[in-house]
Design a protein around this nucleic acid. Structure first.
Lengths: 367, 367
DNA sequence: ACCGGCTCGGTAAGCGCTTACCGGCGGCCC
DNA sequence: GGGCCGCCGGTAAGCGCTTACCGAGCCGGT
């Protein structure tokens, strides 16, 4: 062996295929893309050459020429810890399960259409976030933006040039939006807690203040509590950040200051509930015996917690898949199927609200 | 308003910028890419035009011309349930936390270098997996492949044309590999269980049989057990699949057949342990009192389980980040910095092995 | 037999960039 | 003062595809 390095050789181009098949590059392109119905013999020769050479067209060249990249960009926000108490491994402390599952939904839907997913994240201090998103945009045919990645002004500007679908945001003149029916799910949860369990004091542990989801959930809960005459607790002490750390911090703060806890803590999302349950366990506070806890989203781990988490299920993967389909319709028709899609939610009663565990309904159907 | 449709207009091209700045496109390209040190005045005019028009170069054109896409592809395998007992929501039953965190690591590292991540998944029945991966490859500069996505022959073929880094696989002549030091971590865990806790019977709940990680972990455990004279249990009854469902199924099967459980169940990874603990709880079996359970990976939720999961920590994000850096070196130098990188692991003692909970060490440092 | 029309290949013009190459201009040295 | 060299802009040739356009061949109709 003269050289231990395994040199990689350039992949074959369409010219190589054309030469091997004894036809022009136009013919190769035509049989590969199924245009103009080439003669059977031509088709056979091209196909054989393609198989022999293992030809796969270059994405960039194809994109440039066809003005279609078959790539959609997805941007989400990474937790950027501004709180000094979080250590160097802060990033690993959290998984972004909700976001990851949505992205999986996008990806699966995209695969079906021959698209791929280009992923980008921005950290909370997004001073150059806008630039990064632009770059991503120029590598894709359209963008799916998670909550809180771009301020409205930038969004408006961006969406003039690129199809944009937001998740859990608000639709605008130029963007479409996909979200869940927060109100219905939260109302159902509230009625269950107040009506079925008879709880009379509920706190809302909030997510980001300016997130539409957060606003809608809070409001539905507040309204149900009011109409049922239950005490509704909220405020700056109850300000979380959609992450477990936020929930844990809130509980820690409350307990440290000797603030009495309400009978139920309704968390803005599951990850927050995770942190809450963790902090509660650390202080030896019984869930749901002393304090009941609920989440929102029904992320996969919700059922593995002890007690299992009562929550409101969103069709998470479907959220992603829907966002993709809307985006694709914008890409191909330059007009979305709909500007504001709302997916249904529903209450999932498990143990953390005080319901009995139900062994008849295992989380996994066993063989 | 004549038209409610917000028409998207084509983004500006380099020609638009050149015209606005009164220079040639070559000059625009040069100032943007910092080549040939253009005159200050030229630079200013170009930069101003770029700012005014909001110009960002098209990714495809840039890629085609510069022969560099600044995109890396990542392929992982989605759980494809072959077992009939798993319902329609099977996909949502599982999150792929380990994979997601790795991908996040890749993404963060990629961002630093101006690269983006192109995501593709293959399902277990990967009959056209190879083709899909090829397509992905032609949209990127290189590929990072998770475990079990491509058979070796295909891999060898693929890696002739594209730089490839595998995760938790084996390095070959043409591919590089990044993995964790399974042996050391597992040995440390085994010694803790046998030496510190005095357990004398351990079962290994396996992952995919042909996964190198699985083989290495099993072997380290077997060796430690043998040398310490502990009983080591394994076999077809203990065959999992790296997912929670596999762990739950194994436990369910054992219990249904009246097989007595060992004192410790060492799971191939955390997700498996999750399913095991879930199944055990369902049968009212105490963990760690009656049966101790351990995992491997230290995925973010491991600390949220009750009891908290004792496991072996891999530097998950770093695994991804390292894979990216190796790949990048292959892309730019056509030669990897190293063909086989091994990252350290270490035992994380929590509660599920029988260690006392440690309130002095909260999972989150609270404000 | 001729011609219109239809089928199907080939030729070549881009797509929006990067960069090799060239040429003009100014400064420097002798 | 003339010749060289270096600096910088512009011109144009691709990068690897898709596709509009053209033309050759062949069919059927009259």
């Amino acid at each position: 062996m003269a050289d231990t390095q395994a040199n990689i050789q350039a992949p074959p181009t369409i010219y190589d295929v054309a030469r091997a098949a004894g036809v022009s590059i136009a013919s190769v392109s035509r049989v590969l893309n199924g245009h103009r119905n080439p003669r059977q013999e031509t088709r056979d020769r091209v196909l054989q050459a393609v198989a022999e050479l293992g030809f796969v067209p270059d994405g960039a060249a194809r994109a440039l020429s066809a003005r279609l990249k078959e790539v959609v960009g997805v941007v989400f926000r990474r937790p950027g810890w501004t709180e000094p108490s979080d250590g160097m491994f802060a990033d690993e402390d959290e998984s972004l399960q909700f976001i990851d599952v949505i992205n999986r939904g996008v990806e699966v839907a995209a695969q079906h259409r021959g698209y791929n997913l280009l992923i980008g994240s921005v950290d909370v201090d997004g001073h150059d976030a806008s630039r990064r998103i632009m770059t991503l945009a120029r590598k894709s045919d359209g963008l799916i933006l998670h909550d809180q990645v771009l301020e409205p002004a930038r969004l408006a500007q961006l969406s003039q040039h690129v199809p944009v679908v937001t998740l859990a945001g608000v639709a605008t003149q130029t963007t479409a939006n996909v979200r869940s029916d927060n109100g219905t799910g939260m109302a159902e949860l509230a009625r269950h807690l107040i009506g079925d369990h008879g709880y009379t004091s509920l706190a809302y542990l909030a997510g980001f203040a300016d997130s539409p989801d957060n606003v809608a959930r809070r409001q539905a809960l507040a309204e149900e509590a009011a109409s049922a005459g239950a005490r509704f607790i909220e405020g700056p002490r109850w300000q979380g950040n959609y992450y477990a750390s936020g929930g844990a911090r809130v509980i820690g703060g409350l307990l440290a200051d000797g603030v009495p806890l309400p009978r139920v803590i309704v968390c803005a999302n599951d990850q927050t509930a995770l942190g809450v349950m963790h902090a509660l366990a650390q202080h030896r506070i019984e869930v749901p015996g002393t304090v009941a806890v609920t989440g929102f989203d029904d992320i996969p781990v919700a059922r593995h917690l002890r007690p299992q988490l009562t929550t409101v299920r969103q069709p998470i993967q479907e959220l992603g898949a829907t966002a993709f389909e809307v985006l694709r319709s914008m890409i191909s028709n330059r007009e979305p199927v709909s500007r504001d899609l709302v997916l249904p939610t529903r209450l999932i009663r498990r143990e953390s609200c005080g319901c009995p565990s139900d062994p008849a309904l295992p989380a996994w159907r066993l063989a």
